Amino acid sequence: MAKIIGAILGFMVGGPLLALLGFVVGTFFDRGLGQAMRFNYGAERERVQGVFFDTVFRVMGHIAKADGRVCESEVAQAEAIISQLGLTGARRQDAINKFKEGSDSSFKLEPQMSDFMQVAKSQTLLRQMLLEALLTMALADGEMASAERDIVTLVAKYLGMPAAEFQRLIDMVMAQRQFHSGGSAQSNSGLELKKAYQAIGVDDSISDAELKRAYRKLMSQHHPDKLIAKGVPEDMLKIATEKAQEIQAAYDLIKKSRGS
């Protein structure tokens, strides 16, 4: 269709020569449109989701092996996370298999991250969600060993995240954990409020309007529909949902302290 329109317009503007040029340009347009219409976005999203899932559990296994061996408590921790995500049947077994692959001495982090970056190179949110998932898992026992931190730091470098931004993300995730299940951070109200600001990623001198913008941005980043569209598997959304609840609890505390 485009090649016919191009030929007609070309003839009207400049005669037979431009008509031929319009026909050629229109032909290329038709080809491009046809390719776009044939592109299977559902299949591409499934591919991204698969790479995200594989990367999370392989790197999780790699983190568990960070100290040289995978101990029983780390296996139990991994199984608890898998159960927490609600993975059952074949999906659960797939997660366990990927964890074992990552904990194997033959596993190489760089090729796995290269595969991930092929699907997430232009997806800032997807890269951030990967780091949040890994940090959440690494902190599942309440602390992150130096060897575990080294691996997650290396992952952040592969993802192209600057060191200062990565440290800020760590501080936020650790502070958000203090508000897990809507709970408060500490009995000391001053420390509790400090953690709340860290959970939102802002300073306590921020204005009410800026605070609201920062809060809304975080909640938007953790919205299920947006994450699914970006390629986060549906069965991994529980991490984002819990993050949103922690952010909400921290924000509510700040608002209460400001009398708003």
Rank of each mutant, 00 (worst) to 15 (best):
D203T: 14
R216A: 09
E246F: 00
Q186N: 14
Q186G: 01
G190S: 15
I239E: 03
P233W: 01
G190V: 13
A209P: 02
A250C: 10
E210D: 15
V202S: 07
I239V: 13
A199W: 00
V202I: 15
L237N: 03
I200Y: 00
L253W: 01
G190Y: 15
D235W: 09
K212P: 02
E210L: 09
L253S: 03
Q248E: 08
K255A: 02
I247T: 01
Q221M: 13
G201D: 00
S207F: 02
L193E: 04
L191I: 14
A209H: 10
L237W: 06
I254L: 04
R213W: 08
Q248I: 00
N188S: 06
S189N: 08
P224N: 09
K217G: 07
G201C: 00
A214W: 00
K195L: 13
I254F: 03
S205R: 15
D235E: 13
K194S: 11
A196W: 04
K256A: 12
G182C: 02
I200N: 00
Q198A: 14
D204C: 04
S257N: 15
K230A: 13
A196I: 04
V232D: 04
L218D: 01
D252H: 05
T241I: 12
Y197A: 06
M219W: 00
L191K: 15
K230I: 14
D203S: 15
Y215P: 01
A196T: 04
K238T: 05
K243C: 05
R216F: 07
G201I: 00
Q186R: 14
L193W: 02
E192M: 13
M236Q: 10
K256C: 03
